[in-house]
Design a protein around this nucleic acid. Sequence first.
DNA 1: CTTATAACCAAGTAATTTAGTCAAGAATAG
DNA 2: CTATTCTTGACTAAATTACTTGGTTATAAG
Lengths: 162, 162
Amino acid sequence: MRLTTRGRYAVTAMLDLALNIEKRPVTLSEIADRQGISQSYLEQLFSKLRKKGLVDGTRGPGGGYKLGRSAALISVGDVISAVNEPVDATQCGGQKNCRGENPCLTHDLWQELSLQIQNFLSGVSLKELMDKESKNSGAKAPLTSLTPIHMQVNSAIKTSVF
Amino acid sequence: MRLTTRGRYAVTAMLDLALNIEKRPVTLSEIADRQGISQSYLEQLFSKLRKKGLVDGTRGPGGGYKLGRSAALISVGDVISAVNEPVDATQCGGQKNCRGENPCLTHDLWQELSLQIQNFLSGVSLKELMDKESKNSGAKAPLTSLTPIHMQVNSAIKTSVF
DNA sequence: CTTATAACCAAGTAATTTAGTCAAGAATAG
DNA sequence: CTATTCTTGACTAAATTACTTGGTTATAAG
């Protein structure tokens, strides 16, 4: 799991898409304008999102993108891991042949933690974020915390490959 | 909150430090050897960790590093945010003057989510990871999940600045 | 059928971040 | 004094990120 501005862009774009879809698909130029992201950069991100089934694209006039499935079934973790290459960064490549007294000791621990982060992000759906927004729309109330995270998520959400 | 291999190196090194300290401080060359990380790179990381009070360094023979406070009071989030610059990546710099119909709408949502991730990582202490390891040491049992995460953390841990 | 629209695709480039080297300095135990 | 180890700074190579350019395909609308 990697968490950079790239994932932020992807989540932002997906949220914009989910929030602005009415009947017609949403075009990338709309999202680019609203969110201030380069359209061609969005094209690259959406190429990856499409290959993971998170969005569906239709070409031609009136075309654009729509969500590949219900916003409730798309997790933030799905989006972020879709646009990032998986990280390795161990000197042994997960083969536990690191020399020394403590082979891969902390590596295992990090991998475990990484999995926890992944699970956490799989527990937050786009829909939750959308609902959060509609509650605060218009009102100037400060953003409070999200609803308590349930670690046991719908198994349908857990389809994201690490 | 940023999550890259850099944070992984930092957490790995901090875990190695916490696990290998007996009486004497742990030297960077030890950590570098055990974990296969360049010593000079570790020096850079530990410079930042030291400035945040997460480690204490003592020079000279017999010197090295020790934890700045109890492992139970050092969260993974502390370590990761210590070695990374904070992310912004909004075109308005958080000033909500983005043009268009939905100014900074999704930005707020991301910021909220980012805070949730930060809180989550602040809920996992180095000590928890160490205990996890000592349970599995020797045994070849597969690593199972960490103990359920309590979102309400010790307030002492929440000192990390975002 | 033509045309405008918009997804799709690939190559290249500038900026940033990451990971590492190198060289020096300062504190300190022995 | 001397070896050790932290501490600091400058510099470099590689990787990633963000963006540009220039196309091609599919398709709705005229």
